[in-house]
Write a protein that binds this DNA or RNA. Structure first.
Lengths: 395, 395
DNA sequence: TGGTTCTATGAATCTCCCG
DNA sequence: TCGGGAGATTCATAGAACC
């Protein structure tokens, strides 16, 4: 095995830390000590075989760029890489789809086992294979979160003029099952980086070319389908945290590893072709990780510490007896010393009372209710932010 | 052994169908004379049953908008607590993927039988169903020509902030089999109407709303998923000729029929719900077909237009059938639905026709041709500027 | 009448912590 | 595992309402 490690090699203690919390129950074959998570390495060999040697529930994200269907390449390979005779009638065409399906089924099941409970999966493909992949992953219980369209700003034109320019590829983003709700998704950061608008399911990005494209000595491209780093950046920034483990079972020339290293994530790459793996290793070794302040997490509203309304009063930011209104001044409520609001005889939380006065089933009291300072109305949330910021300062 | 998992286990009979085409057992044996093609009609009933009564190899194009098999749980509320009027109709309910696959397999096989040899098929769907559809149609021997992304310029946002905005739907365009080469595809006309650039596989179009959206007496939408006419226009203009027969097995409120009538194509619609069919019938009756010079075939030779003139028509800024003149009103031409101009029998880009009527070698159609509004003539360029200003595409 | 503001709504697999 | 409740969450467009 010429290449078992590439790029950054982590210390054992680091691995131990990252592996903490991984159950030993379902782990195949090897003990944790004998089989530590091979972080930031490229495993050379068949992906199913290599995956089966990894501990269960050990990675946070999977990015998979499997071989596209083989029907256009004139030859068909079985999962064991034996070649199927070239054929062109319906029976054999079906047979080739069945082969591709079996291959897909195997690697998806192997990947699924090593995913942590909250982990998610990206698979990229074209119309040749993506429908088979999508069907099979649904059959395995994966739960699709989005299909995402990579719109190529500079696609290869259609030379024969008999079809529309094939200007996109499709990615499927899926959780392990429908009941997984706590997957990582940096909604706030994505929105903030997109003119304060939600990021859509169609992404416009150029294909990989220029200096980013790996070439051999003869100037030929090293890999036929090298993915652009920007594509992987978006994915990793959106769905992982720094320190997370990203698995790529079809590593190729290592775009996933390069981007993971740059963004302070760990990677595990599996690649069958030694030539691709070697190119990936050299490429990743030359990557400088970004400074930590460039990749630190964007504040996430859902994970901010909760501030009880009462704390505002206790801290003196708001006084018991003050009158709150909505933004337009159409509704009023009085702040009570115990951290509740009163509208006439009715008493309740800022959310309950906000819902009540509007006749709605629910309401976010932090943004609905406003207090008055210097003749201007400000939302309660402003005081909450103030409190959180002051709490972070050293005392 | 029934079909348990599409793409994984196949029944023997399924393989038989794939090998031999349609088995004769299920084939209805009515002669064309006994069963003339019900052109420009809506057949009320189950689509498979109705399809089996149609003569084999009788339609030129199929547009299918099957149920998506959305699996909704509970309600979704907007941030203002209003409830989204979701698709919860009985026709979109399936017990399992296996059920949906069976349904898909049946209607696709029935559709396949009535397609002429050179006919093509469009199916539209979302990530909930499109992977199943794509897999099954590949299994049946259909040959995918493109997958086409309808990018919605105004999609519904994601209200919970846990996913990317689901801003597109996917269409699969397929021929009956891989050896069909003579399908209709108006490459030259499409290119001429698109700045002399090939049309890509991602199309930006708004959802159906405003006056085009059918509403009942109470002002509620008649159909939850009415498709925009511009979407069907592009499809019919690209892949059919005037006089062709377009089949829609899930007719709904008849967008396919309305566009077919407008563009001088015939249609056959099949719809199970009497209410939808009645709405479709009334809608189509009110359609005025475009004048024949606006839809006659684009000459099958290369031209050199330089304008996305087609976009003006799709955006509604200019209507197919309108007459353009030069500034002094000495020359006239008719706007065609495919983004070209006609002067008598001669058809070409706005530039070519402008040059022709003046007897000059070249002409800038954008400044030469004028349209009439409120009794005044304005150059086409005015509309182009308007469009550019409004056409800020989300990235 | 014209400009501005408000409101309704669209194929949607749409929360999460705590007791 | 289930239920309750805090509190988090929206963009483009049409058309009505208002000024």
């Amino acid at each position: 095995m010429p290449i078992e490690r590439a790029g950054v090699v982590r210390s054992k203690s680091r691995i131990e830390v990252l592996r903490t919390g991984i159950s030993t129950a379902n782990r195949p074959c090897l003990s944790p000590v004998e089989n530590p998570l091979p972080l930031d390495q490229i495993l050379l060999g068949d992906c199913v075989e290599k995956l089966n040697r990894l501990p269960a529930e050990s990675v946070d994200l999977v990015f998979a760029d499997p071989p596209y269907n083989l029907q256009l390449e004139g030859k068909i390979l079985r999962p064991d890489q034996s070649q199927v005779d070239a054929v062109d009638d319906a029976w054999d065409k079906f047979d080739s789809f069945a082969d591709y399906d079996r291959f897909t089924h195997e690697w998806l099941a192997a990947v699924r086992r090593v995913m942590k409970r909250h982990a998610t999966l990206f698979v990229i493909g074209s119309y040749h294979n993506i429908f088979r992949v999508g069907t099979i992953l649904q059959d395995q219980g994966f739960w699709i979160l989005n299909d995402i369209i990579w719109r190529k700003s500079n696609p290869m034109p259609n030379f024969r003029g008999r079809r529309f320019t094939n200007a996109h590829e499709t990615m499927i983003w899926a959780a392990k099952s429908a009941d997984v709700k706590n997957y990582t998704f940096h909604y706030d950061a994505l929105k903030a980086g997109n003119e304060d608008h939600q990021v859509r399911s169609d992404w416009l990005l150029p294909i990989c070319s220029g200096g980013e494209r790996l070439k051999n000595e003869a100037g030929r491209k090293t890999h036929p389908t090298q993915k652009p780093e920007n594509l992987l950046s978006r994915i990793l920034l959106a769905t992982t945290n720094p320190g997370d483990v990203v698995l790529d079972p079809f590593f190729g020339t290592g775009t996933t590893g390069a981007v993971a290293k740059k963004l302070g994530r760990s990677f595990i790459g599996i690649e069958r072709e030694a030539g691709y793996a070697a190119a990936a290793k050299a490429r990743i070794a030359a990557i400088d990780p970004l400074p930590s302040e460039a990749i630190a997490s964007f504040p996430n509203k859902r994970t901010e510490p909760r501030i009880p309304f009462m704390t505002l009063i206790e801290s003196g930011l708001l006084a018991a007896g003050e009158t709150l209104t909505d933004e337009k001044g159409r509704h009023e409520a009085v702040v009570r010393a115990d951290g509740t609001l009163a509208v006439g005889p009715i008493i309740g939380s800022i959310h309950k009372i906000g819902a009540l006065v509007q006749g709605l089933p629910a309401c976010n009291g932090w943004t609905f209710w406003h207090f008055q300072r210097d003749g201007q109305k400000h939302p309660l949330d402003r005081l909450r932010i103030q409190l959180r910021e002051s709490g972070k300062e050293p005392v």
